[in-house]
Design a binder for these strands. Structure first.
Lengths: 221, 221, 221, 221
DNA sequence: AATGAATGAGAATTCATTCAT
DNA sequence: GATGAATGAATTCTCATTCAT
């Protein structure tokens, strides 16, 4: 931690900090770690190149700090959604989580962008650890939803928690990708559609999930 | 075609071609398009720097040729799986497809790697087109499986084909990722597990899918 | 000589020779010696790269051969103009020479182009010698016109031959440049004008030359 | 401006600037734009390759800056000659201009060299504009001399200004070339001659010009 | 004689990092 | 603490020339 950001940076006026974070976030989200240029970052934030090295140890340091910052924003969102839907049933909670995710990505495209970039950059520093942190975070979230749902009898009792967590993570993560990255969305056609179309897809997806997970008459071959 | 690879390359002895393809495939899969270094490729394939430019027009040309090569390998696999399972029921076909995918990725990790890289390289040439081609290919495959399954009465008649295609694509693609890229596999723990564990997860996943899609007693809230 | 072009080339079918000369002439005229690419020449003449080295020793050899070829074409023209105007008076001969020059450049822009290029390429092989040859050729031509004109009493007897030769060479050479290279023509506006305008400029120029050189009432300060 | 040279360069100590300008001027004058090597320039000025790119945007930027610099030196000379000969008659002004030109070229051969190079470098950036600027500059100079000379009655009233400007430009420019570039000087033999010989040629040339342009008894055929 | 594959030096340009002021 | 000039290794790409077939 102390190897990443230097006290010099934290002592900076907040607006200057913000300018630098914004510039770095934009650059990393646009280009990914290895293609991101410190030249661009200093140019956009209006500071001297040397100053960047007063604030952070090196390119890696900047990246890790920015990624940390991004994670903390996401974390805040998830905690808030989780708490505000405490009382609702499993499927409602899941649906609201999905919709909250869609809204978040629309609002903070850069944060989602930096996550997508790191996802496949072998060169990104500590990529493994960073990704694991993010995914485990999501997994924990779904896991806790599932446990509560099963305890309340809303879900089949024989559901394997591990695999079900995987299913939810995969479906929601992919849905968010499709909703935000046109190239991913081959089948759904979300980017050309309006809000209405999006909501219909959410309903259809939830319906399939409900069939897959809910308690009630079981499937009999 | 002639824009990308020059006849010179195709006239080369096969083992030399293979060495170059192998080196390029490795480099692009490791680093992605923009970070891949032609220096590395020529060093690893033991040819002179200038020779590479006798074979391909430029870096883009090499990349496109390699990607094309990779795609054709995948295509061959899918066609083969599809044909060899013609007679089986929907869920068996799906399961076999998944297992074939797992086997393929284990055997050709670099081909899968290059696909993952291009997925997020904003800089990769013709990224949009290449990705669409791949994804649509998968989507068509699932779509045709679904149509046949529904026609045979194995699936619920009210299944929305579009969204269901998306669900299958998401779940299988993600399962493959988890099976091959440890960082992605937070919940399943596939990489540390043996074949046995993997098969169990496949069963669990298939079970959930069956509940979600199969005809039979419907879910009643 | 025998170091420049090899017998192999001269034994070639004439049309093949012509194709190669044409391609080389075009390339050298377009780009000048150092920028001319042998790749382009072989591509345009449809021969193999190795063959070029069977015909000529190296790039320099090709260039010298082509330049020689160009010179011989010019020489033929000048000899012809000189002989066909034997009987006319000095100023008529000069004017006809100028007009013949304009016509020639319009017809053989590449030959003129290669001369212009070599004019300032320090890198062109044997540039000094080649240029001297060309200029001396022109100088001899003017010198002989002047001698005859003076002998016939058409010119002032006190004209210094050397300097007058220089004057004619400078004026005619520059006029040709202005007539063919728009960038040189700041004052005359020849490129946007038609044939008519051109002829008027020729008259005006000849008039000034006449005042400068002709016998007749002398200038008295 | 800021597109071409960066403030970094202008902030440099003067002697360092001078070393770089000198090295670049030499290289461009020797080889012309496309053949000039940045490697040579940095080697000769003793700076690192990267530093050049702190000073200028790219090769084009360096070239344009150097050319601009050269033009400004020439401009200063011409303005000075023009002003210091205000009171003299046309032919004296012209002769002094010519001699000033000869002296300048002897003193700044590289500046003249870079002008000669750009003259035929199809590849030189903004060649058209740069050349037009130079030539029009000279044309304006002669034009103004001519107007004044005619107004004072020193020249024939029927002289066509346009063509006469062309004649002066051609003769003086070519004389300067002959005086500085041995290859151009076929007839005059200026390079092997001493100052004395040169002055005699100037007199002879001026005499012919005087006959061609001056008022006084007209030529009568 | 003809081919065309192989070569490697050299080109312009970018960039993270250092360090004196 | 802030600056920004300096660096040099690394990048992609071109080209004249050689040589085995």
């Amino acid at each position: 931690m102390s190897q990443i950001v230097r006290p010099t940076f934290l002592n900076l006026p907040e607006d200057k900090q913000a300018r630098i974070i914004e510039a770095a976030l934009t650059e990393f989200a646009d280009k990914g770690y290895p293609q991101a240029s410190l030249n661009t970052i200093v140019a956009r934030s209006g500071i001297a190149k040397g100053s960047l090295y007063q604030y952070f140890t090196d390119k890696t340091g900047i990246f890790l700090y920015i990624f940390d910052f991004a994670i903390s924003v996401v974390r805040r969102l998830l905690v808030q959604v989780k708490e505000s839907t405490q009382e609702e049933d499993f499927f409602t909670r899941l649906e609201k989580s999905l919709l909250a995710g869609v809204a978040f990505i629309k609002e903070h495209p850069k944060i989602y962008g930096i996550y997508l970039k790191i996802l496949f950059d072998q060169q990104a520093p500590q990529r493994q650890e960073l990704l694991q942190a993010v995914r485990r975070f999501a997994a924990d979230y779904f896991h806790s939803l599932l446990r509560q749902g099963r305890a309340r009898g809303e879900l089949r009792q024989d559901l394997p928690l591990t695999t079900t967590t995987f299913v939810l993570d995969a479906l929601l993560d992919r849905f968010l990708q499709a909703a935000s990255v046109p190239a991913f969305d081959v089948s759904l056609g979300l980017d050309q559609a309006g809000e209405e179309e999006l909501l219909r897809r959410v309903q259809e997806l939830m319906d399939i999930i409900r069939h897959g997970l809910a308690a009630g008459k079981k499937y009999e071959p």
